[in-house]
């Protein structure tokens, strides 16, 4: 695993609620633009991330699961021809309570191409997650906004 992307955000919530937001399909659909996660979230279990229409986005194994503090996922992209088979990758989620808020650290280790992709993706997803938890309203997908702007131009 050649390199890593680290993103930290602070959210006004509890570790339990944030854990649910990261692992519960009904929750992820709300802020992750229809994407949902499936697993029993036990160490050694399989997990999958699927698009709203059911197509696979990412799969892997649950490497560590210590709710509501730490989750480590083995991560294989399943939909982008460029990224499938781009070597081993793992994403770690560390949740720390600080008074009335929670510090979330996402660390994603991956090969260069996947790393570039997830480095662009995590800030979007985690900004929407924070908005959803704090305001009840997720953000629109920035990718769609950019595409709409290009079409309009």
């Amino acid at each position: 695993m050649s390199d890593r992307f680290v993103y930290v955000t602070y959210i006004s919530t509890t570790p339990e609620k944030l854990w649910q937001a990261l692992t519960d399909a009904a929750f992820t659909r709300e802020y992750w633009w229809g994407m949902f996660l499936e697993s029993d979230w036990k160490q050694g279990s399989r997990w999958a991330m699927k698009f709203a229409d059911g197509r696979l986005n990412t799969t892997g194994e649950v490497l560590e699961s210590d709710p509501p503090r730490r989750l480590v996922l083995d991560w294989h992209n399943e939909y982008s021809p460029e990224l499938i088979g781009d070597g081993p990758s793992r994403a770690s989620f560390d949740i720390e309570q600080i008074g009335e808020m929670v510090k979330l650290t996402v660390t994603h280790e991956a090969q260069p191409k996947l790393l570039e992709s997830v480095s662009g993706g995590w800030p979007k997803v985690l900004a929407s997650l924070k908005s959803y938890i704090e305001t009840g309203k997720p953000l629109p997908n920035p990718g769609n906004c950019a595409a709409a702007r290009e079409q309009a131009a």
Binding site: Y10, S12, I98, G99, M101, K103, T135
Partner: peptide, 12 residues
């Protein structure tokens, strides 16, 4: 948080 909710986060 401040711009979206009107309230900043407590200091860490």
């Amino acid at each position: 948080s401040l711009l979206e909710t009107g309230k900043p986060l407590p200091s860490a």
